[in-house]
Amino acid sequence: MDENALSLENLVKEFDGKKAVNKFSLKLKKGEILGLLGPNGAGKTTTIRMIMNIMVPDSGKVQIFGKPFSEKTKDILGYLPEERGLYRKLTIIETLEFFGKLKGMKKSVIDSRGMKLLKKFDLADHKDKKIEELSKGMAQKLQFITTIIHEPDLLILDEPFSGLDPINIELVKDIILEKKKEGVTIIFSTHLMDYAEKIVDSVIMINNGIKVLEGRLDEVRAKFGNKILHLNYSGDADFVADLENVKKVRDYGNEMEIELIDMKYKDKILKQLIGKLSVNSLSITEPSLNSIFIGKVKDNEVK
C-alpha cells in the first residue's frame, strides 16, 4: 500500500500556449498538511483542479492513495473550491443533506454530524434559513462544513481562509488541525503565508506555474532563509539599509526586519542603532515564509 495520500507527477497544463502549470510534481504523506503557496495567478488553482479531475492535465499523472482518480475516490475527498457557491434557494439543512447524500451519506448521519458542525460554526440557529438570507461569512462557513461533513480522508482546500474574518480564520485553522489529529491528509493553497506557516508540515512554493521551492517547513527555513533581527522602534530608520553587513531591510514604519550577512554581526549593528533610534523591543526570529518567498521569486526573476 502506497504511503502517499497524494502524488503528482510532472503535471503540465497549457492555456493558449502559456504554461499555467509546468512539470509540477509532489508527494504528500498520509496524515500530513501541505501548504501550496504562491502569489495570485501562480497556478495553484489550476493544479488543484487537475487533482480534482476538473481539468484534465495535458500530460502527467495524478494518484490518490496510490490509485488514479475515479468515481470511488470521490467519496473520500473533501474539496473546497476557490470560488464559493451554494444553491441560493436551499436552506442550510437542505444544503447539507444534498451535498452529504451526494457523498453517499445516510440522512441520519448527515443530521447528527451536521448539527454538531453547525453548532461548532455557530450556524445552528440559522439552520432553516435559505442561503440567500445568510451573510457572506456564514455562507463561507457552511461551505466549509459541506466540505468536511462526510469525513474525507483527503481534504483539498483552495484558499480556505479567503473571505473569513480573523475569528473564523482561527476556527478554520483549528478544524484543520483537528482533522490532522484524526489522521486526515490535507493540502491547501493560500497566498496568505502567515497563516500557512502556523499549521503546515511542509510547503511547496509555486510561481508562474513552476515549483520554486519545496520541503518541510523547518528545512525550508534553515535552507533558504537566514535568521532575522526584528525590532520595534520609533524614529527615522532610513540609514539602516546603508550600514555595513546588512543584507536586506524591510521597514514597516514602526517595525523593521533586518537580514544580516551573518548573525555574528548583530551586536555591531545594534551598537550603531542605539542613540539614533528609540528601540522598544528586539528579537531574533526565524525567517517568515513570506520573506523566503519574496526572496525566492526575486532570485528567479534575476535568473
Binding site: R49, M52, I54, E71, K74, Y79, G85, Y87
Partner: peptide, 14 residues
C-alpha cells in the same frame, strides 16, 4: 451552477 462554481463541488462528488 456554472457561475456559482457549485459545479466544481458537484463534480468532486459525482
Amino acid at each position: 451552477e456554472k457561475n456559482n462554481r457549485i459545479v466544481e463541488v458537484l463534480i468532486s462528488s459525482t
